[in-house]
C-alpha cells in the first residue's frame, strides 16, 4: 500500500493540455482586447494595476512561501528606475546596457541586504526592510546627490535607440505598453508559479513551518530564504524598470512607503497564495483608487476596503473564489466517480 501511494502520479493527463490551451487563449485575448475596446485612460489605469500586481506578486511570494513580510518593495522598484536614469544620463550607456546594469545592481543590493536580514525573525525582517527602504528613499533627496538624482524633482528619462525593437515613444503609448505590461505580468506569474512548484518552494514552506526540524534534517535554512529574497527583488526591480520606461521620469514618490503599503494591500486583496491573486489585486486596487479618488475620500474608502477584505475574504478575491468552488468541484468529481 505504501509503495502504491509513493508511486501515485499527479494531475490527470488531460488536465495539463487543457490548462495550457486555456491559458494561451486568455493571454491572447487579454493582450489584444483592451487595446481595441478600452480608452486610453482605462488602459493607463490597467497598466498601473498590472505593474502594481507584479510588485504584489513578489511581495506575496515571500509572504506566502517564506512567511516574511517585506515593506521595502518600493525602494527596489523606484531604485531600479533611478539607476536606469542615472546610467543613461551620467554613465553614457545605451538603453539595453542601462537596463542590464540597473538590474545587476538591484540583485547585488538585494543579495547584500538579504544576507544581513533573512536570518532575523519575521517582525525584525519587516522592520529592517522598512528601514532599508526609507534610507534609500531619503538618500535620493539628499542635497549632495541632487546632481545625480534631481532631488525632489526627480529625473526625466528620455532614452535614445530602442529596447527590443521599441522606441521611447512606444513605451509611452498606452496601447503598446499594455501589451508589454500584460506580457510582463504573465512572465512574472510563470516565474513565481515555477518557483512555488520547485524544490526551492517546497523547502521555503517547510522552513516557514518548522525551521528547527529542517535544520535537524540537514537543511541549510539560510540559503533558500536568501535566494527567494534576491528573486523577488529582481522581479520588483524589473517592474520598476518597466514603470520608468512607461512614465519617462522617476521621482522620490516611486520610492515612498505608500508604494510599499499599496503593494501589500493589493496582495491581500487579490490573495497571496498563487500567481493570479496578486495581479488581480493590483488591477482591483488601481481601478478602486480611481473611483475612491473621484469621491474625494481615497484613504477612507481604502481603509474600509482593507478591513472588509481582511475580515470577510482573508484569502483574497481569488483565494475566496477558489475556496467557494472547491467543494462543488469535489462533489462533481464524486458524482462522476459514482456514475
Amino acid at each position: 500500500m505504501a509503495g502504491a501511494a509513493i508511486g501515485a502520479s499527479g494531475a490527470s493527463s488531460w488536465r495539463m493540455p487543457l490548462i495550457v490551451s486555456a491559458s494561451a487563449l486568455l493571454f491572447v485575448i487579454g493582450a489584444a482586447a483592451p487595446t481595441r475596446f478600452a480608452g486610453e485612460f482605462v488602459l493607463r489605469l490597467g497598466e498601473e494595476g498590472l505593474l502594481l500586481g507584479i510588485l504584489a506578486l513578489s511581495v506575496a511570494f515571500l509572504m506566502n512561501q517564506a512567511g516574511l513580510v517585506a515593506l521595502g518593495a518600493a525602494s527596489v522598484y523606484g531604485g531600479a528606475g533611478y539607476l536606469f536614469a542615472i546610467a543613461m544620463s551620467e554613465w553614457d550607456m545605451t538603453a539595453i546596457e542601462a537596463l542590464a546594469v540597473s538590474l545587476l545592481i538591484v540583485v547585488i543590493y538585494a543579495a547584500f541586504l538579504g544576507a544581513l536580514i533573512v536570518r532575523t525573525n519575521p517582525l525584525a525582517f519587516m522592520m529592517l526592510t522598512l528601514a532599508a527602504g526609507e534610507m534609500v528613499s531619503h538618500s535620493v533627496t539628499l542635497e549632495g546627490l541632487r546632481d545625480y538624482t534631481g532631488g525632489a524633482d526627480g529625473l526625466v528619462v528620455n532614452f535614445k535607440g530602442s529596447i527590443f525593437g521599441m522606441q521611447a515613444a512606444d513605451f509611452a503609448n498606452a496601447s503598446r505598453f499594455w501589451i508589454v505590461a500584460w506580457s510582463a505580468a504573465w512572465i512574472a506569474g510563470l516565474i513565481i508559479w515555477a518557483a512555488r512548484r520547485s524544490r526551492l518552494g517546497a523547502i521555503l514552506r517547510a522552513v516557514r513551518e518548522n525551521e528547527e526540524r529542517m535544520r535537524f534534517s540537514g537543511f541549510n535554512t539560510y540559503a533558500p530564504r536568501l535566494t527567494a529574497f534576491v528573486l523577488v527583488n529582481a522581479i520588483a526591480g524589473a517592474c520598476g524598470l518597466l514603470h520608468v520606461l512607461n512614465a519617462g521620469f522617476v521621482s522620490p514618490d516611486s520610492l515612498g512607503l505608500s508604494v510599499s503599503t499599496n503593494t501589500l494591500v493589493a496582495a491581500l486583496i487579490g490573495g497571496v497564495d498563487g500567481s493570479i491573486g496578486p495581479i488581480v489585486g493590483g488591477l482591483a486596487f488601481s481601478f478602486a483608487q480611481d473611483q475612491f479618488g473621484a469621491h474625494g475620500a481615497t484613504q477612507l474608502f481604502t481603509g474600509l476596503a482593507i478591513v472588509v477584505f481582511i475580515v470577510l475574504l482573508p484569502s483574497g478575491v481569488v483565494g475566496g473564489l477558489l475556496e467557494a468552488l472547491q467543494p462543488r468541484a469535489r462533489a462533481l468529481a464524486r458524482r462522476r466517480k459514482d456514475a
Binding site: A5, I6, R205, N210, E212
Partner: peptide, 20 residues
C-alpha cells in the same frame, strides 16, 4: 513532537529523503 503539520506524512519524509 516536531513534524511538519501542514505537509502529508509522505511529503515530509520524501523531502528529507531527497535531501539526504
Amino acid at each position: 513532537t516536531s513534524v511538519f503539520q501542514n505537509l502529508t506524512v509522505l511529503e515530509q519524509l520524501r523531502l528529507v529523503a531527497q535531501h539526504l
